[in-house]
Protein backbone atom coordinates (compact mmCIF):
# COMPACT_ATOMS: atom_id res chain seq x y z
CA UNK A 1 0.00 0.00 0.00
CA UNK A 2 1.17 3.51 -0.72
CA UNK A 3 1.09 6.04 2.08
CA UNK A 4 -2.03 8.04 2.80
CA UNK A 5 -3.47 10.45 5.31
CA UNK A 6 -6.16 9.26 7.64
CA UNK A 7 -9.12 11.07 9.14
CA UNK A 8 -11.70 9.76 11.56
CA UNK A 9 -15.03 11.13 10.36
CA UNK A 10 -16.65 13.07 13.21
CA UNK A 11 -20.10 13.29 11.63
CA UNK A 12 -21.85 12.54 8.34
CA UNK A 13 -21.75 16.10 6.98
CA UNK A 14 -18.02 16.39 7.57
CA UNK A 15 -17.45 12.96 6.04
CA UNK A 16 -19.36 14.02 2.92
CA UNK A 17 -17.37 17.25 2.68
CA UNK A 18 -14.05 15.43 3.10
CA UNK A 19 -14.99 12.83 0.53
CA UNK A 20 -15.79 15.54 -1.97
CA UNK A 21 -12.09 16.32 -2.22
CA UNK A 22 -9.84 14.70 -4.82
CA UNK A 23 -8.08 11.39 -4.15
CA UNK A 24 -10.11 10.61 -1.04
CA UNK A 25 -11.84 7.32 -0.28
CA UNK A 26 -14.17 6.13 2.45
CA UNK A 27 -13.17 3.15 4.53
CA UNK A 28 -15.65 1.19 6.63
CA UNK A 29 -14.63 -2.38 7.53
CA UNK A 30 -11.82 -2.13 4.99
CA UNK A 31 -12.12 -5.75 3.88
CA UNK A 32 -12.68 -4.78 0.27
CA UNK A 33 -10.94 -1.42 0.10
CA UNK A 34 -7.64 -2.60 1.63
CA UNK A 35 -7.54 -5.39 -0.96
CA UNK A 36 -7.72 -2.74 -3.67
CA UNK A 37 -5.12 -0.54 -2.03
CA UNK A 38 -2.71 -3.42 -1.48
CA UNK A 39 -3.08 -4.41 -5.13
CA UNK A 40 -2.50 -0.73 -5.98
CA UNK A 41 -5.62 -0.56 -8.08
CA UNK A 42 -6.05 2.79 -6.47
CA UNK A 43 -3.78 4.87 -4.28
CA UNK A 44 -5.84 7.57 -2.61
CA UNK A 45 -4.03 10.29 -0.74
CA UNK A 46 -6.51 10.25 2.09
CA UNK A 47 -8.86 7.78 3.75
CA UNK A 48 -11.90 8.89 5.68
CA UNK A 49 -12.78 6.38 8.37
CA UNK A 50 -16.53 5.95 8.64
CA UNK A 51 -16.34 3.66 11.68
CA UNK A 52 -16.21 6.67 13.98
CA UNK A 53 -19.66 7.86 12.87
CA UNK A 54 -21.99 7.53 15.81
CA UNK A 55 -25.57 6.64 15.09
CA UNK A 56 -24.83 4.44 12.07
CA UNK A 57 -23.88 1.40 14.12
CA UNK A 58 -27.31 0.27 15.27
CA UNK A 59 -29.90 -2.25 14.28
CA UNK A 60 -33.36 -1.15 15.32
CA UNK A 61 -36.74 -2.68 14.78
CA UNK A 62 -40.28 -1.66 15.41
CA UNK A 63 -43.43 -3.45 14.28
CA UNK A 64 -44.52 -0.23 12.60
CA UNK A 65 -41.38 1.15 10.99
CA UNK A 66 -39.74 -2.18 10.26
CA UNK A 67 -36.02 -2.80 10.32
CA UNK A 68 -33.36 -0.13 10.19
CA UNK A 69 -29.70 -0.99 9.73
CA UNK A 70 -27.05 1.67 10.16
CA UNK A 71 -24.54 1.46 7.30
CA UNK A 72 -21.81 0.40 9.72
CA UNK A 73 -23.60 -2.60 11.14
CA UNK A 74 -21.40 -5.64 10.55
CA UNK A 75 -22.43 -8.78 8.72
CA UNK A 76 -21.86 -10.75 11.96
CA UNK A 77 -24.32 -8.53 13.79
CA UNK A 78 -26.91 -9.11 11.07
CA UNK A 79 -26.31 -12.85 11.01
CA UNK A 80 -26.82 -13.18 14.76
CA UNK A 81 -29.65 -10.75 15.38
CA UNK A 82 -32.66 -12.66 16.79
CA UNK A 83 -35.30 -10.47 15.15
CA UNK A 84 -33.56 -10.61 11.78
CA UNK A 85 -33.29 -14.39 12.07
CA UNK A 86 -36.96 -14.63 12.88
CA UNK A 87 -38.60 -12.00 10.68
CA UNK A 88 -36.08 -11.47 7.87
CA UNK A 89 -34.49 -14.91 7.58
CA UNK A 90 -33.15 -14.39 4.06
CA UNK A 91 -31.10 -11.47 5.27
CA UNK A 92 -29.60 -13.52 8.11
CA UNK A 93 -28.95 -16.40 5.69
CA UNK A 94 -27.27 -14.14 3.15
CA UNK A 95 -25.05 -12.54 5.80
CA UNK A 96 -24.11 -15.93 7.25
CA UNK A 97 -23.15 -17.23 3.80
CA UNK A 98 -20.72 -14.41 3.05
CA UNK A 99 -16.94 -14.65 3.46
CA UNK A 100 -15.78 -16.00 6.86
CA UNK A 101 -16.52 -15.36 10.55
CA UNK A 102 -13.52 -13.03 10.80
CA UNK A 103 -14.48 -11.04 7.70
CA UNK A 104 -18.08 -10.86 8.90
CA UNK A 105 -16.87 -9.33 12.17
CA UNK A 106 -15.11 -6.64 10.15
CA UNK A 107 -17.22 -6.08 7.04
CA UNK A 108 -20.14 -3.68 7.16
CA UNK A 109 -23.44 -3.70 5.32
CA UNK A 110 -22.64 -0.35 3.64
CA UNK A 111 -19.31 -1.69 2.39
CA UNK A 112 -20.93 -4.91 1.30
CA UNK A 113 -23.42 -3.10 -0.91
CA UNK A 114 -20.68 -0.88 -2.40
CA UNK A 115 -17.93 -3.47 -2.83
CA UNK A 116 -16.08 -3.66 -6.12
CA UNK A 117 -16.22 -6.59 -8.54
CA UNK A 118 -13.98 -9.61 -8.08
CA UNK A 119 -13.20 -10.09 -11.78
CA UNK A 120 -9.56 -11.18 -11.71
CA UNK A 121 -8.58 -8.84 -14.53
CA UNK A 122 -10.12 -6.00 -12.57
CA UNK A 123 -8.22 -7.02 -9.43
CA UNK A 124 -4.90 -7.28 -11.26
CA UNK A 125 -3.08 -4.00 -11.75
CA UNK A 126 -1.44 -5.26 -14.94
CA UNK A 127 -4.74 -5.35 -16.83
CA UNK A 128 -5.96 -1.91 -17.74
CA UNK A 129 -9.42 -3.24 -18.57
CA UNK A 130 -12.48 -1.36 -19.75
CA UNK A 131 -14.01 -0.99 -16.29
CA UNK A 132 -10.80 0.67 -15.10
CA UNK A 133 -10.83 3.10 -17.99
CA UNK A 134 -9.13 1.02 -20.69
CA UNK A 135 -10.50 -0.14 -24.06
CA UNK A 136 -10.77 -3.86 -23.69
CA UNK A 137 -12.64 -6.36 -21.56
CA UNK A 138 -10.12 -9.16 -21.04
CA UNK A 139 -12.77 -11.52 -19.69
CA UNK A 140 -14.86 -11.48 -22.85
CA UNK A 141 -12.54 -13.88 -24.67
CA UNK A 142 -10.37 -14.78 -21.68
CA UNK A 143 -10.88 -16.64 -18.42
CA UNK A 144 -14.52 -16.04 -17.66
CA UNK A 145 -15.67 -18.85 -15.40
CA UNK A 146 -17.03 -16.49 -12.75
CA UNK A 147 -18.50 -13.90 -15.07
CA UNK A 148 -21.96 -12.73 -16.06
CA UNK A 149 -24.51 -14.66 -18.08
CA UNK A 150 -27.20 -11.99 -18.19
CA UNK A 151 -27.39 -8.42 -19.40
CA UNK A 152 -23.67 -7.83 -19.94
CA UNK A 153 -22.52 -5.17 -22.32
CA UNK A 154 -18.93 -3.87 -22.27
CA UNK A 155 -18.08 -5.37 -18.86
CA UNK A 156 -18.86 -8.98 -17.95
CA UNK A 157 -18.13 -8.82 -14.22
CA UNK A 158 -20.81 -9.73 -11.69
CA UNK A 159 -21.75 -7.82 -8.57
CA UNK A 160 -20.32 -9.89 -5.74
CA UNK A 161 -22.62 -8.96 -2.85
CA UNK A 162 -24.66 -11.62 -1.05
CA UNK A 163 -26.63 -9.05 0.91
CA UNK A 164 -27.88 -7.05 -2.07
CA UNK A 165 -30.09 -9.77 -3.63
CA UNK A 166 -31.59 -10.59 -0.23
CA UNK A 167 -32.29 -6.95 0.56
CA UNK A 168 -33.81 -6.31 -2.86
CA UNK A 169 -36.07 -9.34 -2.42
CA UNK A 170 -37.14 -7.71 0.85
CA UNK A 171 -37.84 -4.41 -0.96
CA UNK A 172 -35.23 -2.49 1.07
CA UNK A 173 -34.61 1.23 0.69
CA UNK A 174 -31.50 3.28 1.40
CA UNK A 175 -30.83 6.68 2.78
CA UNK A 176 -28.07 8.36 0.84
CA UNK A 177 -26.35 11.64 1.70
CA UNK A 178 -24.08 13.58 -0.58
CA UNK A 179 -23.56 16.60 -2.76
CA UNK A 180 -25.87 15.46 -5.59
CA UNK A 181 -27.93 12.71 -4.09
CA UNK A 182 -29.72 13.29 -0.86
CA UNK A 183 -32.65 11.24 0.24
CA UNK A 184 -34.22 7.87 -0.01
CA UNK A 185 -34.01 5.43 -2.89
CA UNK A 186 -34.83 1.79 -3.36
CA UNK A 187 -31.83 -0.51 -3.18
CA UNK A 188 -32.62 -1.66 -6.70
CA UNK A 189 -32.04 1.91 -7.91
CA UNK A 190 -28.57 1.96 -6.38
CA UNK A 191 -27.28 -0.51 -8.95
CA UNK A 192 -26.58 0.22 -12.56
CA UNK A 193 -24.87 -1.53 -15.41
CA UNK A 194 -21.53 0.20 -16.04
CA UNK A 195 -21.78 2.53 -19.02
CA UNK A 196 -19.25 4.31 -21.20
CA UNK A 197 -19.45 7.47 -19.13
CA UNK A 198 -19.95 5.85 -15.72
CA UNK A 199 -17.76 2.78 -15.38
CA UNK A 200 -19.02 1.53 -12.06
CA UNK A 201 -21.79 -0.64 -10.66
CA UNK A 202 -23.58 1.86 -8.42
CA UNK A 203 -24.94 5.33 -9.06
CA UNK A 204 -22.98 6.79 -6.12
CA UNK A 205 -20.61 9.60 -6.98
CA UNK A 206 -17.71 10.94 -4.91
CA UNK A 207 -18.79 11.96 -1.43
CA UNK A 208 -22.06 10.08 -1.60
CA UNK A 209 -22.62 7.85 1.36
CA UNK A 210 -25.19 5.32 2.38
CA UNK A 211 -26.23 6.15 5.93
CA UNK A 212 -28.82 3.51 6.56
CA UNK A 213 -30.87 0.74 5.09
CA UNK A 214 -34.55 0.24 5.82
CA UNK A 215 -36.46 -2.96 5.35
CA UNK A 216 -40.26 -2.96 5.49
CA UNK A 217 -41.95 -5.71 7.45
CA UNK A 218 -42.90 -8.59 5.18
CA UNK A 219 -46.64 -9.17 5.00
CA UNK A 220 -48.14 -11.79 7.28
CA UNK A 221 -47.54 -15.23 5.93
CA UNK A 222 -44.73 -14.02 3.69
CA UNK A 223 -41.82 -16.45 3.38
CA UNK A 224 -38.33 -16.11 2.04
CA UNK A 225 -35.24 -18.14 1.31
CA UNK A 226 -31.67 -17.40 0.20
CA UNK A 227 -29.74 -20.11 -1.62
CA UNK A 228 -26.12 -19.76 -2.65
CA UNK A 229 -23.94 -22.11 -4.64
CA UNK A 230 -20.22 -21.85 -4.10
CA UNK A 231 -17.06 -23.77 -4.79
CA UNK A 232 -16.57 -24.54 -1.12
CA UNK A 233 -18.83 -24.12 1.87
CA UNK A 234 -17.05 -21.08 3.22
CA UNK A 235 -14.96 -18.17 1.97
CA UNK A 236 -16.50 -18.18 -1.48
CA UNK A 237 -18.35 -15.64 -3.49
CA UNK A 238 -21.58 -16.89 -5.01
CA UNK A 239 -21.30 -18.74 -8.29
CA UNK A 240 -25.03 -18.14 -8.47
CA UNK A 241 -27.37 -17.20 -5.64
CA UNK A 242 -31.09 -16.64 -5.46
CA UNK A 243 -33.06 -14.63 -2.92
CA UNK A 244 -36.82 -15.02 -3.05
CA UNK A 245 -39.62 -13.69 -0.92
CA UNK A 246 -43.22 -14.77 -1.50
CA UNK A 247 -46.53 -13.99 -0.02
CA UNK A 248 -49.63 -16.16 -0.28
CA UNK A 249 -53.38 -15.61 -0.40
CA UNK A 250 -54.75 -19.01 0.42
CA UNK A 251 -53.21 -21.35 -2.12
CA UNK A 252 -52.30 -18.59 -4.52
CA UNK A 253 -49.03 -16.71 -4.74
CA UNK A 254 -50.06 -13.14 -3.97
CA UNK A 255 -46.65 -11.59 -4.45
CA UNK A 256 -43.20 -12.80 -5.42
CA UNK A 257 -39.79 -11.19 -5.64
CA UNK A 258 -36.98 -13.26 -7.10
CA UNK A 259 -33.47 -11.83 -7.29
CA UNK A 260 -30.37 -13.58 -8.61
CA UNK A 261 -26.80 -12.90 -7.54
CA UNK A 262 -23.62 -13.87 -9.38
CA UNK A 263 -25.19 -13.66 -12.84
CA UNK A 264 -25.01 -9.99 -13.83
CA UNK A 265 -23.36 -6.65 -13.12
CA UNK A 266 -26.31 -5.84 -10.89
CA UNK A 267 -28.40 -7.98 -8.57
CA UNK A 268 -30.71 -9.45 -11.23
CA UNK A 269 -34.39 -9.17 -10.58
CA UNK A 270 -36.22 -11.96 -12.44
CA UNK A 271 -39.27 -9.86 -13.17
CA UNK A 272 -40.66 -12.17 -15.84
CA UNK A 273 -40.54 -15.08 -13.42
CA UNK A 274 -42.29 -12.95 -10.81
CA UNK A 275 -45.06 -12.07 -13.27
CA UNK A 276 -45.56 -15.73 -14.14
CA UNK A 277 -45.84 -16.71 -10.48
CA UNK A 278 -48.08 -13.96 -9.14
CA UNK A 279 -51.74 -14.88 -8.86
CA UNK A 280 -51.15 -18.56 -9.56
CA UNK A 281 -51.28 -21.78 -7.60
CA UNK A 282 -48.13 -23.83 -7.50
CA UNK A 283 -47.69 -26.55 -10.07
CA UNK A 284 -44.64 -28.20 -11.61
CA UNK A 285 -45.52 -26.55 -14.90
CA UNK A 286 -45.73 -23.12 -13.33
CA UNK A 287 -42.32 -23.55 -11.67
CA UNK A 288 -40.88 -24.73 -14.98
CA UNK A 289 -42.13 -21.65 -16.81
CA UNK A 290 -40.80 -19.33 -14.10
CA UNK A 291 -37.43 -21.06 -14.26
CA UNK A 292 -37.15 -20.66 -18.02
CA UNK A 293 -38.15 -17.00 -17.76
CA UNK A 294 -35.41 -16.35 -15.19
CA UNK A 295 -32.65 -17.25 -17.64
CA UNK A 296 -34.33 -16.13 -20.85
CA UNK A 297 -31.82 -14.21 -22.94
CA UNK A 298 -28.81 -15.63 -21.09
CA UNK A 299 -25.58 -15.25 -23.04
CA UNK A 300 -23.01 -17.44 -21.38
CA UNK A 301 -19.34 -17.05 -22.25
CA UNK A 302 -16.80 -19.80 -22.98
CA UNK A 303 -16.41 -21.01 -19.37
CA UNK A 304 -19.61 -20.14 -17.58
CA UNK A 305 -22.45 -21.98 -19.24
CA UNK A 306 -22.74 -23.99 -16.01
CA UNK A 307 -24.19 -20.86 -14.38
CA UNK A 308 -27.31 -21.17 -16.54
CA UNK A 309 -27.96 -24.66 -15.17
CA UNK A 310 -27.18 -23.53 -11.62
CA UNK A 311 -29.53 -20.56 -11.90
CA UNK A 312 -32.32 -22.78 -13.19
CA UNK A 313 -31.85 -25.34 -10.45
CA UNK A 314 -31.77 -22.68 -7.74
CA UNK A 315 -34.84 -20.83 -8.97
CA UNK A 316 -36.73 -24.11 -9.14
CA UNK A 317 -35.67 -25.00 -5.63
CA UNK A 318 -36.69 -21.68 -4.09
CA UNK A 319 -40.11 -21.88 -5.74
CA UNK A 320 -40.70 -25.44 -4.55
CA UNK A 321 -39.35 -24.61 -1.07
CA UNK A 322 -41.51 -21.56 -0.60
CA UNK A 323 -44.67 -23.05 -2.08
CA UNK A 324 -44.44 -26.24 -0.07
CA UNK A 325 -43.62 -24.78 3.35
CA UNK A 326 -46.66 -24.59 5.58
CA UNK A 327 -46.81 -22.21 8.51
Amino acid sequence: MRTFEHVNAPDVQTAVALLGEASTEAIAGGTDLLGELKARLRSPQRLVNLKTLAGLQEISYSPKAGLRLGALVTLAEIERHPIIQERFPILAQAAASAATPQLRNMGTIGGNLCQKPRCWYYRNKLFECWLKGGDKCFAEDGENKYHAILGADRCHAVHPSDLAPALIALDATLRVVGPDLDGELSLEELYTKPTESRRQMTILGPGELITDIRVPIPKNGSRGVYLKTMERQSWSFALVSVAAQMNFAGERIADARVVLGGVAAIPWRARDSERILIGQRFSEGLAERAVEAAVAGAQPLRDNEYKVSLAKALVKRVIIDLCSTTD
Partner: peptide, 27 residues
Protein backbone atom coordinates in the same frame (compact mmCIF):
# COMPACT_ATOMS: atom_id res chain seq x y z
CA UNK B 1 -1.67 -14.24 2.14
CA UNK B 2 -1.99 -10.68 3.47
CA UNK B 3 -5.40 -10.35 1.78
CA UNK B 4 -7.95 -12.05 3.99
CA UNK B 5 -7.87 -15.43 2.30
CA UNK B 6 -5.98 -17.66 4.75
CA UNK B 7 -6.69 -16.81 8.40
CA UNK B 8 -3.18 -17.26 9.82
CA UNK B 9 -3.26 -13.68 11.14
CA UNK B 10 -6.42 -14.18 13.22
CA UNK B 11 -6.34 -12.16 16.45
CA UNK B 12 -9.11 -11.00 18.77
CA UNK B 13 -10.01 -7.33 18.53
CA UNK B 14 -12.23 -6.32 21.43
CA UNK B 15 -12.81 -10.04 21.93
CA UNK B 16 -13.85 -10.81 18.36
CA UNK B 17 -11.78 -12.75 15.84
CA UNK B 18 -10.62 -10.66 12.89
CA UNK B 19 -7.87 -10.79 10.27
CA UNK B 20 -5.08 -8.50 11.43
CA UNK B 21 -3.90 -8.13 7.81
CA UNK B 22 -7.15 -6.41 6.80
CA UNK B 23 -7.27 -3.94 9.70
CA UNK B 24 -5.36 -0.67 9.87
CA UNK B 25 -3.48 -0.27 13.15
CA UNK B 26 -4.51 3.38 13.30
CA UNK B 27 -8.15 2.29 13.39
Amino acid sequence: CDEGTCGTCTVLLEGKPIYACMALAIE
